[in-house]
Amino acid sequence: MAPNTKTHLGLTHFLLFFLSILTIPSLLLSDSIPTVYEILPQFGLPSGLLPDSVVNYTSSDDGRFVVFLANPCYVQFEYLVYYDKTITGKLSNGSITGLKGIQVQRFFLWLDVDEIRVDLPPSDSIYFQVGLINKKLDLGQFKTVHSCRDKVTGTCAKRIFEITRECGFFELVNHKLCEHDKRVADHLRKWHESLMAEARQCETIVEVEVGKVKVEMEKEVDKVKAEARRCETIVEVEVGKVKVEMGKKADKVKEKMEKQVGKTKAEMDNEIAQYRKEIENGEIKFQVMNMNYLTMLVGSWILFAFYVFFFRYTSKNQHGRRIGRMMLS
């Protein structure tokens, strides 16, 4: 029996379609989870801060992370840097704080790197906080991811680096001196922790005292405000009293002025009436005097005319007779 070609082709297409469906979720999953080297630039940090041997990492919403390396290893930057197998810290914009698992070598001593940060806005510098020392380095050497060496070249060199990373160069000179240095370092660490605890305690005390002062100041402010309101009320009452007193005085003055004006008006009316009477009396007297004057004038003319008439008839003077006729005419 001949094989069915169409059946085989249909089965082949179905298998290819099924395999493509199975591979799609894995592709989407790989695209949806960024690598640690992609996360660092999102926070303004160079991706070369971690070596190429990262196998896994975990992170939380508050920025805390845990990075797992294949093995402890070394990377040579400006200084030799040691990476532990597990690295922890807290990632924020432009910085990594609370860092554990990274050390830097300085003068045969291995020092813990507590914090790494960059400038915002970005610059060409990066800063490593090592204890109380803040070391400024060139940012360019951390832009690319470096290969991590799991050992130092040479048996002697490896032994020196391993010893100095734990104790320092003094382990090679004197073991007792190295132990002493360890005790001194431990004592300094405890002293540092004690100072930090005292600083936190002092900070708490200062915050409490500041809170007390703030409460006392708020109480004083409330007292001042209450006193101001009381004074304002007293001023308003006193102003009201003054207004009432001034109103009373103004009424008295007004009443007094009205009386004075009434009295003055009455006196003026009396004087005007008196003047009118005097004027009327003066007019009557003037009329009487005018009449008396006219009477005297007429009488004088009559007497004069009589005299002239008499002179006319008694005197033989022709001139006198003319005067008498003129007067009578």
Rank of each mutant, 00 (worst) to 15 (best):
F68S: 10
N317W: 10
F17M: 04
E238Y: 00
K135W: 14
R165H: 06
I272K: 15
E209C: 08
Q201Y: 09
H192I: 02
G131W: 04
R149Q: 14
V224K: 07
N93A: 15
W301P: 15
E227A: 07
Y82H: 14
M246K: 08
K190R: 12
M327V: 10
S147K: 14
D119M: 11
T88R: 11
E38S: 12
R149L: 07
Q287C: 12
V221C: 03
F309M: 15
S329L: 11
K316F: 05
K223A: 03
M268D: 03
S95M: 01
N56D: 07
R64A: 13
D62Y: 06
V145S: 02
F304T: 12
S30L: 04
G94W: 00
Q76N: 06
I133Q: 11
M217F: 04
G211F: 04
I234D: 01
S26N: 03
L11G: 05
L27V: 12
R200A: 12
T204N: 06
S315A: 07
T264R: 09
T144E: 14
Q318W: 11
V113N: 00
S20A: 01
G282E: 06
L50K: 01
I133C: 13
F43M: 07
V298I: 15
F310W: 07
G94L: 00
V104I: 04
V173P: 06
L16M: 05
L80D: 11
D269W: 03
L50S: 00
K182C: 05
V242S: 05
K241C: 01
L328C: 08
D150W: 12
K85D: 01
V145C: 01
G262L: 12
S60M: 12
V173D: 12
N292M: 13
T233F: 05
E258V: 03
I272Q: 14
I279S: 13
R322P: 04
F311G: 06
E258C: 01
C178W: 00
K136L: 09
L111W: 08
D31T: 08
F286W: 14
Q103R: 07
E115L: 08
A185E: 08
M327L: 11
K285A: 03
E255G: 09
K265F: 08
F311C: 08
K243A: 02
P121R: 11
K263F: 09
A70V: 13
L111C: 02
T295F: 15
Q274N: 15
E255V: 09
V118Q: 00
V244S: 05
